[in-house]
Design a protein around this nucleic acid. Sequence first.
DNA 1: CATCGTTGTTCCAACGATGTAAAGACCGCG
DNA 2: CGCGGTCTTTACATCGTTGGAACAACGATG
Lengths: 329, 329
Amino acid sequence: MATLKDVARLAGVSVKTVSNVVNGYSFVKPDNRARVEAALEATGYRPNLGARNLRRGRTGFIALVLPELSIPYFAELAGLVIAAAQEHEWNVLIEQTFGTLSGERLALASLGPHLVDAAILSPEALQVEDFQLSVPAVMLGEHAVDVPLSRVGIDNVAAATFAVRHLISLGRRRIAAIGAHPQRGTAALRLEGYRAALAEAGLPFDSSLVVPALNYHRADGAAAMKALLDMRNPPDAVFCFNDLLAVGAMRTAAERFVRVPQDLAIVGFDNNDESAYSSPSLTSIAPDKAAIARAAVNLLRERAGSPDLELDDVQTPFSLQVRESTVAR
Amino acid sequence: MATLKDVARLAGVSVKTVSNVVNGYSFVKPDNRARVEAALEATGYRPNLGARNLRRGRTGFIALVLPELSIPYFAELAGLVIAAAQEHEWNVLIEQTFGTLSGERLALASLGPHLVDAAILSPEALQVEDFQLSVPAVMLGEHAVDVPLSRVGIDNVAAATFAVRHLISLGRRRIAAIGAHPQRGTAALRLEGYRAALAEAGLPFDSSLVVPALNYHRADGAAAMKALLDMRNPPDAVFCFNDLLAVGAMRTAAERFVRVPQDLAIVGFDNNDESAYSSPSLTSIAPDKAAIARAAVNLLRERAGSPDLELDDVQTPFSLQVRESTVAR
DNA sequence: CATCGTTGTTCCAACGATGTAAAGACCGCG
DNA sequence: CGCGGTCTTTACATCGTTGGAACAACGATG
């Protein structure tokens, strides 16, 4: 692998002149520049990023800390973050926490300024005292406790209200919610939006219709739905706090021969790619994931330059994708 | 951020002694070791990986080059690769190619030895002449042309034969295939397996039942299925070259009120997480993804040590998950 | 007591790049 | 012709780390 020194020797100039050419410094004599460029071409020189970054005091990496790549929402988001980071010459390092406190702490601990310039976090269980980060960071989504970090995401309360309002507008009156969780900030906010929509329509809040979910996987949604269908007076609609829960719920409904949407309307949250292709297809709150990714990376760029900018809260747009799980073909 | 120098000053020893302690060198006097360890603790020292790797001539990163993280198979695999790499102190850098030749070339070009120690590739369109890699690499899956790389993956021909044999054993006689592709190696092999199973059962090969797919997304499967159902003599079973195609095909079947599996049995390939929860759930070839990830990382470990090991071909196990898309509840 | 081998420590150079300062080339002007 | 200023290039130090050589301390040995 060619180094600056090799190129310099070949071109008959100093190492620094080559460095100047590589970095686009203006004051290089045309014939020297030409010789250097020829030598660069001939050797196939590629800068050693480690050395460059050591010298420049940055690493060229950002971390993306998320629960699991096997969760479609995070996989899709990760792809978009990688693309957005690439435009700013950042490489993305993905750390999986599996949603556990220890996993998240481990990931955070490995995040030194020597490894990454900044980080994007999607925490679920972290405590306030854990947020002693040594690099600028942005948080995606919402957290249960107030945390000294900038944030990017949609307005969860508004989105949840919007979703439940949609169910109400279809004439549903016994609307359940799946996904309550003691620690997750987003869960609390979506529940709040659910209650707001009910109140707005003058519908009673029935806590037996709120089913908690320890995880947000398909299996949890299926289990929660079983519990709801076993009730003496089952719901005529369900608002699920993410699409995986909704997919699980739909699966249970199908197994029990409950017709969706006739007997039971279902709304999800996240608008995973798969939700447009299920049978029935799933109505879902669709956050603009690309906007989230771009906003997060942009925030980090500002923060990485000037570390002590004040906290920001970027609200990205969302919409409701209405599909067959609430409105039959 | 504390450096070795800071720690050395605090402990009253030389930089190298601290380095020795950090790297577990045996011959350090107990009291010096103790003082150094105290100083390490006090300063919260974390080695600068960039500098360390510059000196050691390695980077601590491996690249994972894949089409898209939004494709569940790759997302699940990426998660497993990250986990496997972590056990060998490797960080994973994900590069997305979007399955295009230019995207793959771009990704390969950015893979210098200064950036990564090794790479795991999932190429789709690359030509033989592109495989001039400057780092050890392993390929996942199969490639259309012979390529000088070690390989990890399942036996695609055997798996495809197994899948189609299953359809035949259910009494299906007009079995279609969705996913033929001029460039993809896996497509050619799966097609070969499909033909082998037909031949074995004495069934005729009908090329009008083989539908190509330019991409392997859900939309492509849906479109291909439409074409099949529009035939004068539509098939009674479909073997799809991946689960996304199968999901798309099932969607089309549902829209046309074709009953699965009664009128049409469907088998997929990859066994995505979502395939267990669709309605009907999807029968699919299930490669052992964790085994693939582990094998790939292990191969790279050997190759990174001694670059010119002979090519290897690791066959990982697979099974057939039988579900409702071929056998009704 | 000189010598030796084993331990323990330090100094120096190097990895590949870039910032700084200073030196060299070149120009026009008085 | 000498001076000052603008280009252009170079030497050197530096980022934080580790390998190697050199050196120092030590008890044991002959």
